[in-house]
Design a protein around this nucleic acid. Structure first.
Lengths: 130, 130
DNA sequence: CCATCTATTGACAAAATGCATATAGAGGAA
DNA sequence: TTCCTCTATATGCATTTTGTCAATAGATGG
């Protein structure tokens, strides 16, 4: 079974790599700030943050989670409870992660402003064209 | 003379590559929609779109301009006017570029919404923590 | 047994980025 | 003249990031 869930290739525009990771890691970290969780569940919850689950390869999420652990933003342990199916690696945000989340959100606020500036100048252009 | 302008290494936080190109190409294309221009001038104007010129390597701008030309979004020609200094490659947006600019701005509007969602959920968390 | 769903990991290729460097015309200072 | 600086563009290489695919593995149902 490939990383992509579902089975069929899906109508996913391929190879648009630019800027994917800008929102993904803040999104994951925010969800972990709300509640500790494991990768498979996080993938499904990413839909609530405007990500298209059809276009998300699971390996990318797992890799980002492990990278964030290596950076010391989150901690993980194997799930102790007797769940159905294979074992789960449960992630939790830590103090460093909270700090980083604040920093990332500050940066994203700047990005939001940049986009607003772009939009305004674009609309100015279209207004002139009439 | 290195690509980075100025001379000294500068206080640029290094190695933050994630998502850098999300805004750069739309920004360049918008400026070309406003007025045809050449790379060196665009680099300076990027400051008006919230980019830090100290942290912009010129090679990235030139490369992105040529990539956009290869994609058929812009056209270029060598400047005919007798300017001081070396010749300039002047870029201009074309019809395909206008279409692409609209598409990119639609995508960025979605990104803006995603950031707004992140912010709101983050503030919810901090409200609960009191 | 076999297919399917859940869940995680690793290998490999492709794309984007950062940095250093090459090239070159023009202007000013020594 | 020679040297230095500013303007202007391009290229090569290494690193980082992203996308795709395959491997592994427990549980469940037919």
């Amino acid at each position: 079974m490939p990383g992509r869930r579902g089975g069929d290739p899906g109508p996913c525009r391929k190879r648009r790599r630019r800027g994917t990771g800008l929102l993904l890691r803040p999104g994951l970290l925010l969800m972990l700030a709300e509640d500790g969780s494991h990768g498979y569940e996080l993938i499904e919850q990413l839909e609530t943050l405007g990500f298209d689950p059809e276009c998300l390869d699971s390996s990318i999420i797992y890799r980002n989670l492990r990278d964030m652990e290596e950076q010391g933003l989150v901690d993980s342990h194997w799930d102790e409870e007797d769940t159905k199916g294979p074992k789960r690696r449960v992630y939790q945000i830590n103090e460093t992660g909270w700090d980083q989340l604040g920093i990332w959100l500050d940066n994203l606020a700047q990005v939001q402003q940049q986009i607003a500036d772009l939009k305004e100048r674009y609309q100015q252009l279209n207004a002139v064209k009439d």
